[in-house]
Design a protein around this nucleic acid. Structure first.
Lengths: 187, 187
DNA sequence: GAGTAGGTAGACAGACCTGTCTGTTCGTTC
DNA sequence: GAACGAACAGACAGGTCTGTCTACCTACTC
């Protein structure tokens, strides 16, 4: 197996450190040192730190979206079940070691509104909302937007709570509340 | 009216800047310059930056807890109505200019777990949870802890969503979802 | 064997960070 | 009027931050 390229090592290190410590708390020098890369190489792949931050967020987006989809489809073929099942991704995330909440919420807390980094977090949340909305429409909701917003509210609440206190009970509770909300909206 | 004391000016400036830009993004020098205070005075009142951060969080805690209580009592004397009414504080906050989500969630995103700053955010969330739990118990819930967790999940979700996109619709939706959850728990 | 792409190593600039220190000025109280 | 507390003004130290730059090295390709 070929050793990971310099770019890959940088991205891997950034993924680990940015999530664990925060965007501002991790300097370029630290990432360079820990990924065992030369400074010139770093700046060749990522002309500015923010470019690396954006690449980091893009990777997180891919991973998290994948986990949401997987959790949803694992709940079965019915959209209604999937709307509740996606919350299993939250439980899995909560139990993961080093869990520190939602990378996007954390990034938004450090980013200035209007900057590309902040825009990326907003775009991610909109994409998730859109996906849940489609699921809600498939499930036959009369108000798919309202139902989707209620569910993403619960999801974000669970993610935010995890940043303060990674309690798996919060994830379970979120799933139960989602069940109640879905039942009220579809029955 | 006497002009505000140096300590008060520092705290006022910190309140404004920390919330608007984040804890790490605002340096001591900036706060000193904007509050029109001497550096020695600053360090006399707050021996380290973290002391100021803690004072800032304590002030936010006081204000936000007050707004939650006010919104709850405005909904009437019945605990059941108060459980839903407290979400009006979220709507009011969302509509405020410069709203950037929950100061505690944002602070937690920048703080290292285990530090006093992080502990303060956890303590705040626990206090809110405890208060809602008491309200749920008064309302006659058979599982006051579960109901309180569901509701704070919605509340945190609304606050977190506001950090990305201060949409008052999210607050309205949170209130409606709370209504559904409370109804399911108490009927 | 020359050229090129991609990497390593590390000095350097310039800004900004927290925190310390010296000295001055003002108002109050004794 | 002397003493004192509280604040002002700002230089300074020591560290960290991002980003640039020079110089060398290695593997592959033509």
């Amino acid at each position: 197996m070929a050793p990971p390229s310099a770019r890959q090592r940088i991205l891997d290190t950034a993924f680990r450190l940015f999530y664990a410590r925060g965007l501002r708390a991790v300097g370029v020098d630290t990432i360079i040192a820990e990924s065992g890369v030369a400074k010139a190489t770093f700046y060749k792949h990522f002309p500015a730190k923010d470019d690396l931050v954006l690449a980091y967020l893009a990777r997180v987006d891919g991973i998290w979206s994948g986990q949401l989809h997987d959790a949803a489809t694992a709940a079965g073929p019915e959209p209604r079940a999937q709307l509740v099942g996606l919350f299993d991704a939250l439980g899995t995330a909560c139990r993961r070691d080093g869990y520190r909440g939602c990378a996007f919420i954390n990034a938004a807390a450090e980013a200035v509104p209007g900057t590309p980094v902040h825009e990326a977090t907003v775009a991610h949340k909109h994409a998730v909302l859109q996906w849940v909305r489609d699921l809600a429409a498939e499930a036959g909701s009369g108000d798919p937007d309202g139902l989707a917003r209620s569910l993403t509210l619960l999801l974000d609440g669970g993610l935010a709570a995890g940043a303060l206190d990674a309690d798996p009970a919060a994830a379970t509770r979120a799933r139960e509340a989602a069940e109640v909300v879905v039942a009220a909206a579809l029955n």
